[in-house]
């Protein structure tokens, strides 16, 4: 058994243990009713956007139509450069649906709060905004093209996550690179352009999480790279007792544990699903149609997986 499998096994054990009496839930940010190719940058008097146990602060100035914190978006523009396209993700859509959220941190960071108090966060999907992506890829009037003039500058654009436990902020932080040009081999340099899983489980059970971007292109006015990122599918654990499904339909799993594929019978209307590792990292997405469905799992290693149906129940799947 190689090292990766050992780590995976231990992780599964730990997460399976911590999940006793809890279930995985995911904030999808789909209920804001903004329609396709639109955005919502004003949370009104509440000054935050809610999605189940997640609360995203929003600070909007109606005098100037300026905002910071979080905005809800379904923008699909993956081509327009510059500030005017600040609400678009480079993927052109959310991870699992049209909607996602955009963080404009302005150097101070954006906070994810848990309404129900300390919550074990599992992870989230992140990607670059179109604005930041092209600024790093091509440069603009204010920010540099990553790699610099020679292409060899060891530039980076990263997001850090630190946890608030009560009033105290953790000293350690988790990091994910939204762009990384530090490789000796320039062909390995990348700017993130897909939804990518950011594992937050090591933060434990914080009250809130501070997300902040950092760039190697920094000047007197702070970072020159547009301080934006996009987030979707924030996954966390919540007590089973708070579980209420909006959907009356249930899937019938035919055979669990499974070997090559999951076979399930679905009686409801067509519905998206996500197959994830036990600690929340998504592995596959798709749509269930009415009747018999099969989900290929032959390439996955043995272990416990979560099958989440949108607005529906969560199933634990054991692969042999």
């Amino acid at each position: 058994m190689n090292k990766q499998l050992i780590i995976l096994f231990l992780t599964l054990l730990i997460n399976f243990g911590s999940a006793q009496g809890q279930e995985v839930d995911t904030a999808l940010f789909d209920h804001f009713g903004i329609g396709l190719d639109s955005f919502l940058n004003d949370a009104g008097d509440f000054r935050f956007f809610d999605d189940q146990n997640i609360q995203l602060p929003n600070d909007y100035d109606p005098d100037f139509d300026a905002w910071q914190g979080w905005a809800i978006s379904s923008m699909t523009d993956t081509d327009t450069r510059g500030f005017s396209n600040q609400y678009s993700a480079i993927t052109g859509a959310g991870f699992f649906s049209d909607n996602y959220v955009v963080a404009g941190t302005f150097g101070g960071g954006s906070v994810v709060k848990f309404i129900d108090g300390p919550t074990a966060s599992l992870g989230m999907m992140v990607t670059n905004s179109t604005y930041a992506y092209y600024s790093m890829l091509e440069g603009d009037a204010f920010a540099k093209r990553f790699g610099g003039e020679s292409g060899n500058d060891p530039d980076f654009f990263l997001m850090s996550a630190r946890a608030y436990y009560g009033d105290s902020l953790s000293t350690d932080s988790l990091v994910i690179y939204l762009a990384d040009y530090r490789f000796e081999d320039n062909s390995k340099d990348f700017i993130m352009d897909q939804w990518t899983y950011f594992d937050l489980a090591p933060l434990g059970e914080p009250d809130s999480i501070l997300l902040r971007v950092w760039s190697s292109d920094t000047g007197a006015f702070g970072i020159n790279t547009p301080a934006y990122f996009c987030m979707d599918h924030f996954t966390y654990l919540r007590p089973m007792t708070t579980s209420t499904y909006e959907d009356p339909f249930e899937a019938k799993i035919l055979g669990n544990p499974v070997d090559e594929r999951i076979r399930l019978e679905w009686v409801g209307p067509s519905r998206p699903y996500m197959l994830a590792e036990s600690y929340g990292k998504p592995l596959a997405i798709g749509f269930l149609s009415q009747g018999m469905n099969e989900i290929e799992v032959s390439s996955f290693p043995p272990g416990i997986y979560m099958l989440k149906i949108k607005n529906g129940p969560l199933y634990k799947i054991l692969k042999r």
Partner: peptide, 13 residues
Amino acid sequence: EIPPTTVQTRSEA
């Protein structure tokens, strides 16, 4: 025409 900076791929400004 506003030329690109040395760390900007192109400019159409």
